[in-house]
């Protein structure tokens, strides 16, 4: 079932001199199987939006029905909601706390009242899925791992509850170029196995254009546009007007001004250029 958000508005610190409207009449439906990229400048409302999805920010105006759970109900089942929608925050390694990797990854399943055996099985699966060898890592302290490994453990801790939806906020921030590629490959792997719907917030439009199927653009608390990644070319000017970047591939395509050349993903564009060159010669 989809996540349906309608007319969502939210104001921080209402009634104080610091009052700020973070979201203004936002409507968006996240469908099963979506790989949705959310882009927008800092402070455009992206984080406030995703925090509403699993009830971390209480709904005050508008409606959200997440996988059948109505968040405008008096007491929505937050526990169930948070089991369904996993959330990986920015720099998630900063939430690690337990003395071993295994215990940390078990934290989620334990909170969801899973039995010890279930916890062990879930943790095992999650750690392996996150690309770490279970036997080699389970008894190590998360604090002695490298930065990249810590992040994988933190992600394992979120996917251990097998959420159907996974929201990631800047999962590749601070990683080196190869680490970034590996991170996105990990996300694709998770999408193929446990969490079939993925939402990623990122500032890197090239990354989003490469991996996401659909893009929602936040601007000053509103959604400026919501489109299939393949159609991003039409929105290039609108993105620029909002101070946002346009993917390098789209810039190149628009500069060439040839209708035969298509593709937003790097491989598609390269193939298309090569094909055009060969046929025109």
């Amino acid at each position: 079932m989809p996540i349906v958000v309608k007319n969502l508005s939210y104001t921080y610190m209402k009634g104080t001199p610091y009052e700020k409207q973070a979201l203004n009449d936002v409507s968006l439906t996240i469908n099963d199987g979506d790989f949705l990229g959310i882009i927008g400048a800092t402070g455009s409302g992206k984080s406030t939006f995703v925090r509403h999805l699993n009830g971390l920010i209480k709904l005050t105006q508008g409606s959200i029905i997440a996988d059948g759970i109505d968040l405008s109900a008096k007491k929505p089942d937050l526990k169930l909601l948070r089991r369904k929608i996993g959330m990986v925050f920015q720099y998630p390694e900063s939430q690690l706390f337990a003395e071993t990797v295994f215990k940390d990854v078990c934290y989620g399943p334990k909170n969801m009242k899973k039995s010890a055996e279930e916890c062990e099985a879930l943790a095992h699966e999650a750690i392996e899925l996150a690309g770490l060898d279970f036997e080699a890592f389970k008894d190590r302290s998360p604090f002695e791992l490298s930065g990249g490994e810590k992040r994988r453990v933190a992600i394992a801790g979120v996917i251990a509850c097998k959420p159907e939806y996974l929201v990631l906020d800047e999962p590749s921030a601070g990683l080196d170029p190869k680490g970034k590629d590996e991170m996105y490959n990990l996300v694709l792997k998770i999408k193929a196995s446990t969490s079939h719907t993925v939402v990623i917030i990122s500032h890197d439009i090239d990354e989003i254009a490469e991996y996401a199927d659909r893009i929602a653009v936040f601007d000053d608390g509103r959604i400026y546009a919501d489109f299939k990644t393949a159609d991003i070319g039409q929105y290039a000017d609108g993105l620029k007007e909002r101070g946002l970047d346009v993917p390098v591939t789209v810039k190149l395509r628009n500069a060439l001004k040839l209708s035969e050349i298509t593709g937003v993903r790097q491989n598609e564009l390269i193939e298309s250029i090569l094909k055009y060159y060969k046929t025109s010669k």
Binding site: A41, T42, A173, G174, H203, D204, I205, G243, L244, D245
Partner: peptide, 8 residues
Amino acid sequence: TSMLDPEG
């Protein structure tokens, strides 16, 4: 610059 957005 590693913790900044493209604008920053």
